[in-house]
Design a protein around this nucleic acid. Sequence first.
RNA 1: CGGGGUGUAGCGCAGCUUGGUAGCGCGGCUGGUUUGGGACCAGUAGGUCGUAGGUUCGAAUCCUAUCACCCCGACCA
Length: 419
Amino acid sequence: MKTSNFPIFTVKSDPSDAEVVSHKLMIKSGMIRKLSSGQYTWLPLGLRVIDKIQDIVRNELNRIDCREILMPLIQPNELWKESGRWSEYGPELLRFKDRHEREFCFGPTFEEVITDLLRQDLSSYKQLPINLFQISTKFRDEIRPRFGVMRSREFIMKDAYSFHASASCLDISYSKYMKAYKNIFNSLMLDFTMVDADSGNIGGSESHEFHVIANTGEDDLLLDDSNNGMNIEIAKEKYQEENLEKIVGKSGMTLKKGIEVGHIFKLGTKYSKPMNLRFTDENSKINDVFMGCYGIGISRVVAAAIEQNYDDKGIIWPKTMSPFQVALIELDSKKNTGIREYTENIYKALKNNGVDVIHDNRDLKLGNKLADWELIGIPNILIIGQKETENKNITLKRRDEEEKREVASEFINDSSLTV
RNA sequence: CGGGGUGUAGCGCAGCUUGGUAGCGCGGCUGGUUUGGGACCAGUAGGUCGUAGGUUCGAAUCCUAUCACCCCGACCA
């Protein structure tokens, strides 16, 4: 990839309407632009980060044999009436009529649609378990969207659903997802915790939340020294206490702020029963299907990762979700074709090595280019100008190091440049 | 929905109190000099001052309405 055909839209000044650091940095680095409140366009740079996260999520879900599907964004109200949520779900559910006066809603979550899907094709216990997921844009008409993509109305979510012949099978699957989620957030290199949670609007018997720990988080968590614990609603119930300070005293644990990036639920038969999703078991008996559902806020993960990894220069990406592994800066190439040739060779060699590299061939000064790539947060910056071309070496500036250093051109084979 | 705030050039802002026909920084474009941490000089383009109405000889400025956006709260994955 070269900057000549990969638009870089960095800006110098802080956007006037951004409050939290992730929102500011996502705008400044040119990852997103606002369309209207709670709705953002993902630019090429931002979308690369989304893609990196999705790759990791897909990989882990494939490992537990969860298969990908894609469901429509707009859903007919009949299904929601069947489940009872047409009346239960608040104004967050954006409803509208089509030209035939049929009522629809924008999908905030997909239990109804997938339950309907499965009841058409599921009949026997021999087909179970079934695990499906999708990654798609969801819409929730938030009371107050805020903090950029942290709490937006349109957002990208991975939602998975599992279907089982019994509660014990659901339990087994639930722990598989729990493990997969831990793998996902470990792969994303985030400081996170899993806590006992309230199942809220989605419903069901048991649920756990995954939080990225960050001071700017909107959720209160009660955690012990190893960051195990529960969300604050559960804590209030458990300790029969509303006052947060008293809860801390009673529990001996600490209050921390978290950004909820994942939530897993044991739904049981909450949807299968009212919507008649049933199967015939080995004794020819008809039973309700046991279900689980498992969400990850992909777009929110991006913001959460930044809240946890930045400095005064900009973002510091965990390498697994960085839009690029290497920014290759070419200097002064106008006056000396040897520089261009040497840089081009390094670029090609990096690509041949499978390094995810962006070649900055813009006609800008070193300071401008460094500032851009440090703002964007690329882990490795390689600089090539007159000096390096003559010495046949490269200057390396790591995002997490203060000083630049000269390395031999063979450095392009270094394993630290790949994920 | 309640409270607070902001809308002026692509971005960030000043001007508004005290009405006289719009300015600064950054960015853009052209030319030149530069070039290893956000260069300099010269020139140039770009704005129905959120929108609508009103007051006035005259409105970015005063009045009314309205819309959008941000913050706090209630709510929520």
